[in-house]
Amino acid sequence: MNGMIGDIVGSARDSLATFGRMMMFLGRLLAATPAAVLRPRLVVHQIYNAGALSLLIIMTCGLFVGMVLALLGYDLLSRVASEDILGAGAALALTKQLGPVLTALLFAGRAGSALASELGLMRATDQLAAMEMMAVDPLRRVALPRFLGGVLAMPLLTAIFIAIAIFGVQLVGVQQVKIDPGSFWSQMRSAVELADIYEGLIKGTVFGIACSLIAVYEGYNAAPTAEGIGRATTRTVVVSSVATLILNFILTAFML
């Protein structure tokens, strides 16, 4: 019993230490951020890697999430004869919750894991050490643009996800189960306020910061072995997902 408590305390302390190191890493990244302005091309390249390459998966998933939301919502709402508010309900759920959260989870799986394994590989093959030896700071040259690319791409990916998902809702709701398009859209418009969209975008940005930071941190500090890279990649996806869901709760509570 005593041992178990000790274990729990120990692992809590370890997590706290990791969190602390991550925050220090974030501090170093932020301190170096002004330097990135001088090298916009590096950041553009990483927006491409994190954003443009995630586009297909984000759009596909957005479409199907929207469509299933419409089916489910219609089934439920038609029982109380309120299928008119399908658009409103789906749009609210998407902008405030599903959009940012699902985008962040997909982002962690697609861009985050790619980032972590790329950086881990660079660590394992001495590329980062080689840069240091060439008097180039790999934190600025490699980690920072990747972090910023992810941070900038996430809100845009979130917006694209939500827009496509609403298209999906509309596709099933209006085209297939024949909800009146007029009431579908007008209900949606009267229900969704600008503040809801801000909430979605703020969440997207915060999740973007968290997921990018975790991916870059794990990859940059990966053990320089094949196993280390694998572990960094797995940890990136797991920790990002958990962090996203926890942050989502905190942000939702704050913005309610």
Binding site: A91, T95, L156, A159, I160, I162, A163, I164, I166, W185, M188, R189, S190, V192, E193, L194, D196, I197, L201
Partner: peptide, 11 residues
Amino acid sequence: ALFFMVTEITA
């Protein structure tokens, strides 16, 4: 997508 959200989904 952002523009779509602001103009089409909200009032």
